[in-house]
């Protein structure tokens, strides 16, 4: 399955991967982050049950230094 993560095309093994599984795959477990899927925010409480579909566009964001 192919999805876009932060503007980049990413190839993932298997179908119907959840956001929780993706976070694990990307080595982001435990990081404070927020996710938007196809323009809609996915609350952290729904990561376990939210499945990804081919072509989905994800934004994964965090806090960085800024003024």
């Amino acid at each position: 399955m192919q999805i876009f993560i932060n503007g980049k095309l990413k190839q993932l093994d298997g179908e119907n991967m959840t956001i929780s599984a993706l976070v694990l795959t990307l080595n982001l477990t435990g990081k404070r982050l927020a996710v938007e899927k196809n323009g809609e925010i996915v609350p952290r409480s729904l990561f376990l049950e939210t499945k990804l579909l081919n072509g989905d566009k994800l934004e994964i964001i965090g806090a960085v230094g800024g003024g």
Partner: peptide, 9 residues
């Protein structure tokens, strides 16, 4: 203040 940016995957 903090900025909100894409996480470096």
């Amino acid at each position: 203040t903090v900025a909100i940016r894409r996480i470096n995957i």
